[in-house]
């Protein structure tokens, strides 16, 4: 469990980070909290000759809330997220989800940016960000660009981020209505067997909008447009729940692992989604 030798960089300016990425290309990676990258290096599943630590870059760990828009710096930790009163008021689902990630020790180090940028289908934040229709800000040699969370994920560990780009912040429009993040896991510290992020708007007893994303049930997070659509216009009754479940099951593609076979995962995904919708609806 000892990584191959690597050079360690701790630049203080983003320009220097970009320059290092340009110089070393594929051989360089940036590191935020390190909770995904370092274990992979220790297992020698990832060899990173040039490791660029982002801890010393100013301005990456700030949280802004203005004009109905939240901006969360890439180096904001899960712990920061949980303990930010403004975020809790503006988007309580963030706190509810972050509390279900690993344990306090991990959450002190694990960052929002690392969680969304790594492209690990087991991570909770990518699905959550899709549910919230977040936008990721990427900085590269040619300047900045934004990519919607719903367009960001291509396959396991494959994202729209180019090798020379760094994800610097996440912007989220303040969500409306009820919310829930429901996750089944085997134990503390585990990835989800199935997890669902739900935001739902209720007007006059009817659902007028619903956003649903699922975690660890495909090689990317799954934003299920059809599952959300199945709820719109209904009173979120049993029939609507079943329709949403059926739509979601059409979108996910789980694989068997130590958590269980595909049939089990699909069943649990349906149960977890229904529970998330019910809880979100009760809060809407």
């Amino acid at each position: 469990m000892i990584p191959a030798a690597f050079d360690y960089y701790r630049p203080t300016k983003m320009d220097d980070v970009i320059a290092l990425l340009k110089e070393h290309g594929d051989d360089a990676r940036v590191m935020a909290g390190g909770h995904s990258l370092i274990p992979m290096m220790k297992l020698r599943m990832a060899e990173i000759p040039h490791l660029i630590d982002l801890q010393a870059i100013d301005g990456l760990n700030e949280i802004f809330i203005e004009d109905g828009q939240m901006t969360i710096g890439a180096m904001v930790t899960q712990h920061d997220l949980i303990n930010h009163a403004g975020l809790e008021a503006a988007a309580p689902i963030l706190r509810e989800a972050a509390l279900q990630i690993a344990d306090p020790q991990v959450r002190y180090m694990g960052t929002v940016g690392g969680n969304v940028a790594n492209g690990d289908p087991g991570n909770d934040m990518p699905g959550l960000m899709q549910c919230l229709d977040a936008t990721f800000l990427l900085v590269g040699p040619d300047g900045e660009r934004s990519v919607a969370a719903r367009d960001f994920y291509e396959a396991a560990y494959m994202t729209a981020r180019e090798d020379e780009e760094v994800l610097t912040s996440v912007s989220i429009p303040a969500p409306q209505g009820g919310y829930a993040y429901e996750k089944q896991k085997r134990k503390i510290g585990d990835y989800a067997t199935a997890a669902a992020a739900v935001q739902i708007i209720k007007e006059d007893g009817k659902c007028t909008a619903a956003s649903i994303a699922m975690t660890n049930l495909s090689d990317t997070p799954i934003y299920s447009v059809d599952a959300g659509a199945a709820l719109v216009g209904t009173a979120v009754d049993a029939a609507a729940l079943n329709a949403a479940k059926a739509a979601m099951l059409g979108d996910i593609d789980p694989t068997e692992d130590n958590r269980g076979p595909v049939a089990f995962k699909k069943h649990v995904a349906g149960v977890i989604l229904a529970r998330a919708i019910e809880r979100a609806w009760s809060r809407a």
């Binding site: 344990d103 134990k187 510290g189 990835y191």
Partner: peptide, 28 residues
Amino acid sequence: LGQEIAYDDMGNVKTGTLMDFFLPTAWE
């Protein structure tokens, strides 16, 4: 309730890390 050293048909250990090997914490 979950702790095992599981092998696949090729004799590969499927539970060789604490991600898959169940070690309860105070939470469980």
